[in-house]
C-alpha cells in the first residue's frame, strides 16, 4: 500500500501530531513500512481460525456495582495546568 503526502497530513491531523512539510517524506516511508508489515501478515492463511479481538485468550472480569472511590479532587487538580471552581480549565472550545 502506498500513501500520499495528503494521507500523511490527514493521519497526523487525526492523531494531533504536528508533522512539518520537511518531515512528511520521512514519516511516509516509515508508515509505508508498517503497512507492508500488515500486508505480510494479511497474506498468512488463517482459514478455519476464529478471529480474535484480543491478544490474550481470556474473558473480561466483572466487578460488583459498588461505589469504591471517594472525592480526591484537590489531589488530582494539583497536577492540572489550570483549575478553578472545581473545573479543569482548558483553552476555550466552542463548536
Amino acid at each position: 500500500m502506498s500513501l500520499s503526502a495528503q494521507d500523511i497530513e490527514r493521519i497526523a491531523h487525526l492523531a494531533r501530531i504536528r508533522v512539518t512539510p520537511d518531515e512528511v517524506g520521512q514519516v511516509q516511508a516509515k508508515l509505508e513500512g508498517i503497512f507492508k508489515l500488515i500486508d505480510d501478515m494479511q497474506s498468512v492463511n488463517t482459514k478455519g481460525v476464529e478471529p480474535m479481538s484480543h491478544g490474550l485468550d481470556m474473558v473480561l472480569r466483572l466487578r460488583d456495582d459498588v461505589v469504591t472511590e471517594s472525592n480526591q479532587r484537590e489531589k488530582f487538580q494539583s497536577n492540572a495546568p489550570e483549575a478553578a471552581e472545581g473545573y479543569f480549565l482548558v483553552p476555550k472550545v466552542i463548536e
Binding site: E82, E85, Y87, F88, L89, V90, P91, K92, V93
Partner: peptide, 11 residues
C-alpha cells in the same frame, strides 16, 4: 463555555 472568560471548564 460561559462560566470563565478565556477558558472552558471541564467537569
Amino acid at each position: 463555555h460561559d462560566q470563565f472568560d478565556n477558558a472552558s471548564g471541564v467537569d
